[in-house]
Nucleic acid binder design. Sequence first.
DNA 1: AAACAAATGTTCCAGTCAGTACATTTCTCT
DNA 2: AGAGAAATGTACTGACTGGAACATTTGTTT
Lengths: 220, 220
Amino acid sequence: MATTTDSDRRGWTQNPDAVKQDILTVAVSEFAANGLSGTRVDTIASRTRTSKRMIYYYFGDKLGLYTSALEAAYLKVREGEASLDLDHLPPREGLARLVAFTFDHHRRNPDFIRMVMIENIHNAEHLSASQVIRDMNVAAIEKLSSICGRGQEQGVFRDGIDPLRLHWQISAFSFFNVSNRPTFSAIFGTELFEEQTQSEMRQQIVDAILAMVSQPIAAS
Amino acid sequence: MATTTDSDRRGWTQNPDAVKQDILTVAVSEFAANGLSGTRVDTIASRTRTSKRMIYYYFGDKLGLYTSALEAAYLKVREGEASLDLDHLPPREGLARLVAFTFDHHRRNPDFIRMVMIENIHNAEHLSASQVIRDMNVAAIEKLSSICGRGQEQGVFRDGIDPLRLHWQISAFSFFNVSNRPTFSAIFGTELFEEQTQSEMRQQIVDAILAMVSQPIAAS
DNA sequence: AAACAAATGTTCCAGTCAGTACATTTCTCT
DNA sequence: AGAGAAATGTACTGACTGGAACATTTGTTT
């Protein structure tokens, strides 16, 4: 009964969800690697256990697939963030933990970063169409807001911190570190991206962010 | 003698350099807008005062044109930076000026930013091939090195500052601010990018960078 | 002025690729 | 069991697009 010569084609079993997931996984990887117009539907299909036919069956057209891939990439990353529970930590440590985590998490998810880069090249027009993604992100900021609130209550953070700006700053470092690594290495060499250096930079960034939210030292 | 009906075609005057420049300007704009594979050579040609024929004549193929466009984009931006003379300022002010300038300069040159984003998507493989670009950038860091050196001599900066890391940090803020604006606005709205807010953020970044290079306050 | 080189105009093609047509198989419901 | 729906296989096409072929004009040099 297991005499399938080469591919398990005859008398196959259907599994629509697995097929969709298979396509999506490959799609994220391909779109992240080659961009929207650089990606070939045929290439995606060939890396799949299914066929081009099914891509069009489930996702309509290339853009539909791209949009779904974008959502899948966001979903995966935001899920990873959800595991982080900071409410039991004092504000400064919580924030430090969050920044360090974000830095590492971005490094671990280069495909996500690349999808966002590509979306930015396209002026976020596909992302704008996705309510799902907006919701996820707004939720992501609430974690930060909560820390800020507690920090201000306890007087360890200065007043007037805007969680959105803080998020922007944390993202700037963490994102740029991955997104611009190729050009940066090409120009200045790879030292900045060696494990040891990255680790130091992460600490530097944590410190910088903490300094920004701290009560200002009396000006000199 | 000026009876050209519609286009000045008959008895035209040659001007190779102008033609090349014309093509390059359009090419930067198109590649920045659409990426490498998203850009159509025919579209570039149509926006030019010349023809597709000349693109291939001068630049060989699409990749050759892209590489030249990339160099042109870098050249233009680095030229803009060259106008900045900071040697007559005390280190802290010089650095503050440099950071603020970089922030603004990136905002003024979105096409350059987009070209770099695109290069990063392509893992900087075309940039790596261009010695010209490497040279320009290494030169750009020397300005920063000089400020750091003076600051450390005078004791207003802490020891062990790495100009490259500093450059990385300044770039991270300034670059991200432009590169990720579309997705950021799409998700969180446009408040961060209004003139007033941008101005405040620039100041915040200047302060953050200055804090990073300053003599550490005795730890609490 | 003639001969050669540089620059440009016009037209077409061959490969690529998103998307479709048509046929078949598996699943579900009664 | 059988009928309708869902899922999948196979082969094809029409438009797009990078690039080339071929012809002509302008500039330069002696």
